[in-house]
Design a protein around this nucleic acid. Sequence first.
DNA 1: CAATAAATTAACCAAAAGGTTAAACCAAAT
DNA 2: ATTTGGTTTAACCTTTTGGTTAATTTATTG
Lengths: 206, 206
Amino acid sequence: MEKQKNSAKQRILRSAVKEFADHGFWGARASRIAKGAGINKAMIFYYFSSKENLYRVIIEDTVKDLIEEVQKSMAKSDDPEKLFEILPEVYIRFFSKNEFMAKIIIHDLVQNPDHISNIIGQLFEKTPYKPQKIFQEMVHKWHKKGLLAESDPVHVILNIIPPSLFCFIGLPMVEAVLERKIKVDDKFIDERIKSVVNLIKRGMLK
Amino acid sequence: MEKQKNSAKQRILRSAVKEFADHGFWGARASRIAKGAGINKAMIFYYFSSKENLYRVIIEDTVKDLIEEVQKSMAKSDDPEKLFEILPEVYIRFFSKNEFMAKIIIHDLVQNPDHISNIIGQLFEKTPYKPQKIFQEMVHKWHKKGLLAESDPVHVILNIIPPSLFCFIGLPMVEAVLERKIKVDDKFIDERIKSVVNLIKRGMLK
DNA sequence: CAATAAATTAACCAAAAGGTTAAACCAAAT
DNA sequence: ATTTGGTTTAACCTTTTGGTTAATTTATTG
């Protein structure tokens, strides 16, 4: 019953996601969230008790969704070639489905580095299945087998996620540098996925 | 005379850079900037007239410094191999010199996409030397010659800058995922540069 | 239908924020 | 010594903000 797509609570959430994405936690205004949701400002505090809590709910939901999706697709692939084909697609499709989420995560990461870390830590504590250990062991094993050129899991991650994530926030800068408008449509998304897959497969596989 | 390293004006600037990096424009507090600089709050408005203007000055200086450094090193290299060796080094060393700059640029990019674009646009208008045209022509030429696997300049940029920039803001997330602390010392910086150079050379050169 | 619970609103509030001001301070020039 | 100009300060002001409240409307249920 709770999940009515147009309940006041849901409308607040949707409006807040946009507000936090555009302005960050400190720039977000309760009054604007209310106006965007078409409800009275007091409703925000009625349902979420504080701006901070509303923010927490949104971040936690977002991160949880993302982690779940990544886990699902990681479980399917146990060779590096397949993994490197799947990961960019997962990240890029996830963030293109809702560009606000990329912005919110980046905001939170810069303003409050420990916050997302804690959420991830808590999520991992609950699962018996430990994706972080599995990933590290995978990288180690593949490197030993001579399949992987890059041996450090830290750099493997830093080579995969940023090229996938950054196009959703860095594009204006690229446009300015190249003096050209770039439309983020399905074609661009497909091209970006192809380019990243190519980059990390050729760049890190042997 | 103006450039005394400990003049009130300089102290305000240094304190403000840290404040804007940690909290973004909307989270930054004039009172905290004043306390950090060890001066009276009114001095901020005496020298910079408004918070917004102080912010503008900082962003413009930062972006100008970065662009200048990139231009310098781009002028030196006219084959893709050399360029792909130099660019990650420039970006990573620039941001590691002062991690605040990475955060400030990211903040501004997310909250105010047109802002940095405009600054870059203005900078390029003044120079007779047009780096954006040169870069596009380079990529086009190299791709034709069969030296480059990636033909689109947009994706070339999106494959180079994010892996270089993101480690300065995304590391807490990586730490959480891998359940491991990562020290950002000179050794790590060197390794990151090597990894990115490897990634983009193998990933995009033929 | 009556009574109770949930949802919604307008009006209000205290705290905090950016910004102003007028007076004091201080160094150099006359 | 006095004037002059730039610095610096404490006290103050205005607006905006997240958050509250008490009253009202709407839905639920016995």
